[in-house]
Amino acid sequence: MTTTSPAQDPDTLPTSFGVFKPVGHVMVGLPTQSEADALAVALQAAGWPRAAVQPFVPSDSAAELRALVDNAGPLAGFGHEITLLRRYQQLTAAGYRWLLVRVEDSRPAAAAAEIASACGATLAVHYRTLTVEDLIS
């Protein structure tokens, strides 16, 4: 039984200045697939609909992330988003699994990060309209 929605189509990934920026989502990084699966189950148990939890397959993610960094516009080099993308690339190369969790605002983002941390996540980043916030230190 699948606990997450299908992986996001790379052509529909939200961007700003050509850089991945999924406003209204928390990007969660987990060291193993079993932790990612456990997080998807835990989020659904906490009330997130299945469609609100989207996985990135590691082999696909590496290519997607590399393309996003390579195709970033000149203004992206000044933003935290490009730094995060490079961090995502390094972790993906180390075998990390990724979930993109849709959230309405800061409160559900914090709740998602708390659940993610309990499931083994080492990274949770909340993308807001004008800011990006690391939720797991």
Results as ranks from 00 to 15, higher is better:
Val57Leu: 15
Pro58Ser: 11
Thr32Pro: 00
Gly73Trp: 06
Arg102Leu: 06
Arg97Val: 03
Phe56Gly: 15
Phe20Gly: 00
Asp105Glu: 10
Ser34Asn: 01
Phe20Lys: 02
Ala38Ile: 00
Asp60Phe: 11
Leu99Gln: 08
Gly120Asn: 01
Val69Met: 09
Pro49Ala: 08
Gln33Cys: 08
Ala113Glu: 11
Ala40Pro: 10
Ile82Pro: 06
Val53Gln: 04
Phe78Pro: 00
Ala111Leu: 15
Gly47Pro: 11
Gln90Val: 13
Leu91Glu: 12
Tyr96Leu: 06
Leu85Gly: 05
Ala63Gln: 13
Val23Gly: 02
Ile82His: 12
Ala51Pro: 00
Thr83Arg: 12
Ala42Glu: 08
Pro108Glu: 07
His25Lys: 07
Val41Asp: 11
Ala121Asn: 01
Ala121Lys: 02
Thr12Leu: 14
Arg107Gly: 12
Ala51Leu: 07
Gly47Cys: 06
Thr131Pro: 00
Arg107Tyr: 13
Pro6Tyr: 11
Gln89Thr: 13
Ala62Pro: 02
Thr92Asp: 14
Thr32Arg: 00
Ser117Cys: 10
Cys119Ile: 00
Ala67Ser: 09
Gly24Gln: 09
Leu39Tyr: 04
Leu65Glu: 04
Pro58Tyr: 12
Ala7Gly: 14
Glu133Arg: 14
Ala94Phe: 08
Thr129Ser: 03
Thr12Trp: 10
Ser59Ile: 15
His80Ser: 11
Asn71His: 09
Val19Gly: 02
Ala113Asn: 10
Leu91Lys: 07
Cys119Arg: 11
Val28His: 02
Glu104Thr: 08
Phe20Ala: 04
Ala52Lys: 05
Gln44Val: 07
Gln33Asp: 04
Ala113Lys: 06
Leu123Met: 05
Arg107Glu: 15
Glu104Arg: 10
Asn71Met: 03
Ala110Cys: 15
Pro74Tyr: 05
Ala118Tyr: 04
Glu35His: 07
Tyr88Cys: 04
Ser106Met: 12
Pro10Tyr: 13
Asp70Tyr: 02
Trp98Asp: 05
Gly79Asn: 05
Glu35Arg: 03
Gly95Ile: 00
Pro49Thr: 13
Ile136Ser: 03
Pro31Ala: 09
Val19Trp: 04
Gln44Asn: 12
